[in-house]
Amino acid sequence: MINEHFELLTDTPFLAVDLDVLERNLKRMADLAKRAGVKLRPHTKTHKSPYIALKQLEYGASGITVAKLGEAEVMADHGIDDILIAFPIVGRNKLRRFADLLDRAKLTVGLDDLFVAKGINDVGEARGRRIPIYVDVDTGLHRMGRDAVASVEPILEIARLPYLEVRGLMSHTGHAYAKATVEEIRAVAVEDAELLNETRTLLGKRGLDVPEISVGASATARFIADIPHATEMRPGMYAFNDRFVMAAGGAEVEDCAVAVYATVVARPTRDRIVIDAGSKTLAADPFRHGGYGHVVGHPNLTVRALSEEHGTIEVAGESDVRVGDVLRIIPNHICPAVNLADELFAFRGGELETVIPVLGRGKNR
Results as ranks from 00 to 15, higher is better:
F6S: 06
D342Q: 06
R92W: 07
P228D: 15
G119H: 00
A346V: 10
V90T: 09
Y261R: 01
D276W: 01
V149E: 14
V135R: 02
D18S: 01
L161A: 09
D100T: 06
D122F: 00
E232Y: 15
V137H: 08
L22M: 01
L196A: 03
V109D: 13
V303L: 09
R160G: 11
T201W: 10
G324N: 01
H43Q: 10
L57Y: 14
K68Y: 15
D11C: 04
I131F: 07
D20N: 06
H142G: 05
K45D: 10
T263P: 00
L141Y: 08
E194D: 12
L282V: 02
I131A: 14
V315F: 08
P357M: 04
A221P: 00
I64S: 13
A193T: 12
V295W: 13
D285V: 02
R200W: 08
D31R: 04
L95T: 07
F87L: 09
T173Y: 11
D31C: 01
I273S: 00
S62T: 08
L57S: 03
K48T: 11
V135E: 04
A193Y: 12
G204E: 08
G297W: 03
A148P: 12
K118N: 05
K55H: 01
L26M: 12
Q56C: 09
L111H: 06
P299I: 15
V253M: 11
T312Y: 15
N339Y: 09
A248K: 01
D320R: 15
G119T: 02
G204I: 07
G60S: 09
L344R: 07
R243D: 07
M144N: 11
L169V: 15
V215Q: 10
G293T: 00
A178M: 07
H229T: 15
R234H: 15
E125H: 11
P228G: 14
E153S: 08
S62K: 01
R270Y: 02
A259K: 07
E254H: 03
P299H: 14
A16M: 06
G216E: 15
L69S: 10
V116W: 14
T199D: 06
G350M: 11
V188Q: 08
M237R: 06
D147K: 03
K55M: 02
D192S: 14
V74L: 09
Y51V: 09
A193W: 12
K205R: 11
G349I: 07
F345R: 05
D31H: 06
D81N: 11
V182P: 13
I2F: 03
L340W: 12
M29L: 00
D11I: 00
G60P: 12
I213V: 04
V149K: 12
R361G: 08
G145E: 00
R130Q: 08
V90L: 12
L57A: 11
K45P: 15
R167P: 01
L352T: 07
P132G: 13
C256W: 14
M233W: 13
I273T: 00
I334Q: 02
A150F: 05
L141T: 08
G174C: 02
A230N: 10
A53Y: 11
D192P: 11
D18K: 07
P50V: 06
